[in-house]
Design a protein around this nucleic acid. Structure first.
Lengths: 228, 228
DNA sequence: TGTACATCAGTGAACGCGCGTTCACTGATGTAC
DNA sequence: TGTACATCAGTGAACGCGCGTTCACTGATGTAC
């Protein structure tokens, strides 16, 4: 029954097959391409069959969004994991923040269809209290910022809502680059712009006692050109 | 012939009427709602008639985007114009940058459909050289940053590509708030978050010689609660 | 000032498309005995 | 181990929808004489 190789009249794992197909569609054509009919077609099944597993088109899209978000979180974690080791806790914390940002941006650039799908209007909101941090990528960001405080780089006075600023900058950069007016930038210029942005962000977060040369040093430490 | 009140068999100003109708549709339902048929319907005309003025649906959408962008530029200019006068050139320049950002964000919040339409995939790109600054809102930003250098707040070393950082932060904030996970934030929290973001941005841009208290002072000068 | 006529800006009907969704159905599966 | 049968997961045909676009057309406009 749980044998995925088995394909007969009963599919066995149609729900997952539909979501995978939908993610594939999203990857190629963004959220607009995610339709019940197309997903069913790709899964080799009648459109009606999809209604055994999803009540409506909206539910399929919702599931696809979640999958896209998971793929994004995975990509980000890989960036963090690839960070070179260091004994300096400030460098480590700052490097981690930058890696999170770069992971986010590179995912958007390499998988624009999935990125757009993940943030299509009406995803899960961070409701009411911002501290109910339930999304994986968001949680990573929160932890990185907490780390920066612990380590003495970010003063407690500037900590509140810092995740929103960091997130806004990185998210805005991503969307301007994939959909917006920065679309036709060369990769070289784009990487440079990203570096400047992460640097200004790090400077904005730095405690007054911290030299801004530190941020510049840490950020230039990490070679940004190895990806995509 | 140019009498707009005249409505007979010949409309007289159908192209503009169609774009206006399309903008109205965009305002209500975003770019997806902009269709030739719906615009023609709203203008009281047959779909076919639209083809006298636009070659395709895509052209109508393009014209609608431009209109949305113009409305946005107007809203931003109003924010800048409403700035209190001051003799301190640094305060003036910094205040102007913040007003531009607030204008951008408030437009997105009060006219999300138009905002989404303006930035729908495939707008006019800032091609090749970033210094071909042909978009009105973008030009405002460039000028504000140039001002900040002239006035001694932003050092020349951090000037290059600073517009991208500023734009990214403000744009990202806007989209996260209208479409993304910050959708359900209270207005109060949202305004506070925006204030923090503009403050961190101003700190990131500040020359090392400039006290970060200045940025805080300038930004809190401007009462952010009067709008929307 | 009047008229013939080219041009222009609309109409109305129709096409094919892919979509979401519903209906009555049927073949496959697994379980009770 | 075999069988009857309920349940489950599909099929296939059909619906109505709004869309972009094209066709042959016609009424209104403006201009040359």
């Amino acid at each position: 029954m749980a044998d995925p190789a088995k394909r007969g009249y009963h599919h066995g794992d149609l729900r997952n097959a539909l979501v995978d197909a939908a993610a594939q569609l999203a990857e190629e054509g963004g959220p607009r391409s995610v339709t019940i009919r197309a997903a069913a077609r790709a899964a080799g099944v009648t459109p009606t069959a999809a209604y055994r597993h999803f009540e409506s088109h909206e539910q399929l899209l919702e599931a696809t969004k979640e999958q896209a978000m998971e793929q994004m979180a995975t990509a980000m974690r890989e960036h963090v994991a690839a960070l070179p080791e260091t004994d300096d806790p400030v460098r480590r914390a700052l490097g981690r923040l930058a890696a999170i940002g770069r992971g986010y941006i590179y995912f958007a650039i390499s998988e624009p269809g999935l990125f757009r799908t993940a943030f299509e209007q009406g995803g899960s909101a961070i409701d009411g209290d911002i501290f109910e941090k339930h999304d994986a990528p968001f949680r990573m960001l929160v932890e990185a910022l907490d780390d920066l405080v612990e380590v003495g780089y970010l003063s407690a006075a500037y900590r509140p809502m810092a995740e929103i600023t960091a997130w806004s900058a990185v998210h805005g950069f991503s969307t301007l680059v994939i959909d917006g007016p920065l679309r036709e930038m060369s990769q070289q210029l784009r990487d440079a712009a990203m570096g400047r942005m992460l640097l200004l962000l790090a400077r904005g977060l730095a405690d007054s006692g911290v030299s801004s040369e530190l941020a510049a040093a840490v950020l230039s430490d990490i070679n940004p050109g190895e990806e995509n």
